[in-house]
Structure formats: C-alpha cells, structure tokens
Amino acid sequence: MILYGVPGWGSAISELMLTLADIPYQFINVDGFDKPGPQRDLLEKRNPLCQVPTLELSNGEIMSETAAIALMVLDRCPDLAPPIGCVERQQFQRLLVWLVANVYPTFTYADYPERWAPDAPEQLQQNCIAWRKTLYLWLDNHLKASPFTFGEQLTLIDCYLCVMRTWGPGPVWFAENTPKIAAIADSVCQLPKLHKVLKGNDILC
C-alpha cells in the first residue's frame, strides 16, 4: 500500500491505524499539495479532490477519508474496535462518524477561510475555532473510561484523539480544558509500537 500524506496532518491518523494493525505501507510526503505544483499534481492523479490521506491499495484501488480507511483496517484487525454486539460497539461507531462529520469540517473552513468567506475570512475562522472547542468540551464530558476511550481496549478512536490533540486549539488548551482527551492521547503516545510513527509526525507527549 502507498499512503499519500503530510506529517502531522490527517494522514497521521491513518498511519497510526495501519501501524497498529500491522499493515505494511509506504508513506509518500505530498507537503505543499494544497498549492499548485508537483506535489499537487502527484496527488491529483490518484485523488482528484486532492485530499490527504489518500491510500493506494495493492490492487491499485484508491481509498480516501480516514473513517473509510478505519473500516478497512477493522476488516483486517477487528480487535481495534469493541466487539460486535456490545454497547461500546455502537458508541465506537457513533464517535467514528461524529469526529469526521463534526470536528473535521471546522478545519476545512477555518484553515482556508478565504475560500469560503472572502468578505469575512477572520470571522469565519474565529467562529469555526470557537465551535470546535465546544465540540471537544462535549466529547470530554461524555468520555468515561481510561486509559483509552473504551477502557483497557485500544481502539481506532484513540488514534484520532492522539493526533487531533496536536491540532488547534493545541495541547495546552486540551490539558487545561479537556483532561480526558489529553490523558487518552498521552496513553497512545506511550505505546512503543507507535513511537516511530509519532516521531515522524512530530507528535510528542
């Protein structure tokens, strides 16, 4: 498999997932893909939407979207989610969709506000960041287990929280306002199996 991404971006989540599942992959850094140039041309040939992560499977098929990649990983390594039939399974499914449906769009619009609101980019950016904080606060209030989201079992949701903790509003804000998310991210960072990937993505605890 070939994973096209940028260190520290959403592709870092997929790197953690693939590593946990012992699925071998080659990482190709397409930093700068969001501007015209060779990196964008390279990515656009695989994914016309020019998004990271873009995963090229061994059969040549293309996958994008971290949630879709997560489901593919679970097909190969079911232990990275709560067992089918238990209450936690439904909550896992809910959070997987919740993170990409609610939190992700705040980055889509806040990172490039001039694309969506050229007359008021700063206002859009500020509103998106403020909304993102309320989402993280809601999530932290609904997390009950430790050291991971679902207790002792490590799941793919923990990969999301570990990486997203490094994004805005930043690790200091998470530590001060969402201690449960911060603690889960710390637990993931302590896993020796992931140290190489975490270091390659500048994710430090």
Rank of each mutant, 00 (worst) to 15 (best):
L156S: 01
D111F: 14
K45C: 02
G32Q: 08
P83N: 08
G170K: 00
K35N: 14
I28M: 14
C189P: 02
N102Q: 15
M17W: 09
A175F: 03
G8V: 09
A68W: 01
F174W: 07
P192D: 12
W173K: 01
Y136K: 00
L204I: 10
L143A: 07
L3W: 07
T149F: 10
E15K: 09
A68Q: 08
I28D: 02
D79W: 06
P192L: 05
S146I: 04
L74S: 10
I28A: 12
V73T: 03
A182G: 01
Q51C: 07
A70Q: 00
N127H: 08
L198R: 03
V100T: 14
N127Y: 06
W98M: 05
Q39F: 02
G60A: 13
V172E: 12
Q126H: 11
A175S: 11
K180V: 05
I129N: 05
L80R: 03
A130P: 00
F107V: 01
T108G: 09
V188D: 09
P53S: 11
K133F: 06
P171Y: 00
G10I: 00
P83I: 00
D140C: 06
R76L: 15
Q39L: 06
V197F: 11
L156G: 01
E61R: 15
A130R: 08
T166V: 04
L42Y: 08
F33Y: 09
C162G: 03
E114W: 08
A21Q: 14
Q123F: 10
T134R: 15
H142D: 09
F27W: 04
L20A: 09
L96N: 05
L204Q: 13
I69D: 04
R165G: 03
W98K: 06
L198S: 05
P171C: 06
D140M: 05
L99G: 02
E61M: 11
P169D: 02
I184G: 00
V188W: 01
A68E: 02
D202N: 13
P105K: 12
T166I: 03
Y109N: 06
F27E: 00
T106H: 11
R40E: 10
